[in-house]
């Protein structure tokens, strides 16, 4: 690991094969001492980059970011020039992650705030159990296509799937999309065949209100990857929302006591 000061508040770290513990310790130390931007060069899959930092610093990653990039993220803005692995933005609360490439499985798991933009494709179980509470609304945008269980158990937030640059015949999403979804909203560019969807959701055409939200949300994505919003919006979007906030009502009964038995 080699640390270089570029200017007063900008540092460059050549990571190489350094262990993630040493690297993250260095990043935290620099952040604590007032660094505003840290450029990481030659990143070879080091894990947990960006976690445990509350300062709103910028982290640039050149190479391949390792698993759990920005897990529990609480402020930093991360940009990856390359691919990321599994768990991008896992249980994230605040900040932004931009990946100029593909990302792996379980990205955005339990995410409750902040923004994640992935330029390429994502793996399985992305955006599962995303949540929202009042003004904490997470946004996860996938530029390419997604694997199975996209948005499973989704409880809040906005999950947007664009499917740009797909080869012909390629599906935009895998099986069991939005199963168990009971909150939040999913927007998909183009149509999602019913066979991919869980039984807990319904598909709608987008309204004017939705279009406003989409344009607003896509602004950041468009800036990050230099794709005009109009171009993205040139195809119609589908909106997927849960049928009920209580998907598993009438599943359970009392053993005794309440005479009607069923728990409503």
């Amino acid at each position: 690991m080699e640390v270089k000061q570029i200017s007063e508040k900008v540092y460059e770290i050549t990571c190489g094969t350094v262990h993630y513990k040493a690297l993250n310790e260095k990043i935290k130390e620099l952040a604590d001492n007032g660094a505003e931007k840290i450029i990481l060069k030659e990143v070879y899959g080091q894990r947990y980059i960006g976690t445990g930092i509350k300062q709103k610093i910028k982290i640039e990653i050149h190479g391949t970011a390792g698993n759990d990039l920005g897990i529990f993220l609480y402020g930093p803005e991360i940009e990856v020039f390359g691919n990321a692995q599994d768990g991008v933005g896992n249980t994230m609360r605040e900040g932004k992650i931009i990946v100029r490439g593909h990302a792996g499985d379980v990205c955005g798991y339990g995410m409750r705030g902040g923004k994640v933009y992935i330029e390429g494709d994502v793996g399985y179980r992305v955006g599962i159990h995303m949540k929202g509470y009042k003004n904490l609304v997470p946004t996860f945008i996938v530029g390419g296509k997604a694997g199975n269980f996209f948005g499973e158990y989704m409880a809040g937030g906005r999950l947007i799937l664009l499917g740009l640059n797909r080869k012909s015949g390629e599906d935009i999403v895998g099986d069991y999309c939005a199963t168990g979804m009971h909150g939040g909203v999913m927007y998909v560019r183009g149509e999602v065949p019913q066979r991919f969807l869980g039984k807990e959701v319904k598909v709608f055409e987008i309204t004017e209100e939705d279009e406003k939200i989409l344009r607003e949300e896509l602004k950041g994505f468009s800036e990050a990857f230099n794709i005009p919003v109009e171009e993205i919006m040139s195809e119609p979007f589908t909106k997927i929302v849960p049928v009920s906030a209580r998907p598993y009502g009438r599943m359970y009964a009392h053993r005794w006591g309440i005479a009607s038995g069923i728990i409503k």
Partner: peptide, 25 residues
Amino acid sequence: MIPVGSDAISPAPHHDIYSIEDLRQ
């Protein structure tokens, strides 16, 4: 950190833990 009146569902597994190595992670 979920909306009022919404079900709070805890999945059966942690979906980022399918093995001892994942647990370590």
